[in-house]
């Protein structure tokens, strides 16, 4: 009986999609920050994330890069390209590139670089959470 219970617990842990993994941890951190910035925060939205991803920007530090899509293409499941170096950029979508959003420090490094580069400022926790939610939905 006890071992049956134990295997049930293990099964639930393995198959429960809400189980905390690195991606859930990253989203939880952004959610905490978003809530702190705005107590009315009511969760991330893939739809807002998509609009953010596709938006054309001005004011970024990088000339010639005016949107997330400049390097990542309009379809996150497609391979992109860094325009200055010609290097291929792995598809953003986690369904294609399994290592996306698996390390919080790497995720933060790229948000810091790219938000300054494309938007000319740091992104808010809400924007980051929406972005990750959108990409993970692809």
């Amino acid at each position: 009986m006890r071992s049956l219970l134990l295997s049930l617990v293990v099964l639930v842990a393995v198959f429960n999609p809400a189980m905390a993994g690195p991606r859930e941890d990253i989203l939880a951190t952004y959610a905490t920050q978003a809530k702190r910035a705005d107590p009315a925060f009511a969760g991330f939205s893939a739809k807002r994330g998509e609009a953010f991803y596709l938006a054309e920007r001005t004011g970024g530090e990088w000339s010639g890069v005016s949107s997330c899509t400049t390097c990542h293409t309009k379809d996150p499941t497609k391979v992109g390209r860094q325009p200055d170096t010609g290097k291929e950029v792995d598809a953003m979508a986690a369904s294609v590139s399994s290592d996306r959003f698996m390390k919080p420090e790497r995720t933060e490094k790229w948000f810091t670089r790219n938000c300054k580069g494309v938007l000319g400022r740091e992104c808010t926790a809400l924007e980051k959470g929406d972005f990750v939610t959108y990409i993970l939905s692809k």
Partner: peptide
């Protein structure tokens, strides 16, 4: 870094 912020810790 050649027109890019490639900040490294």
């Amino acid at each position: 870094h050649f027109g890019h912020n490639a900040h490294i810790e």
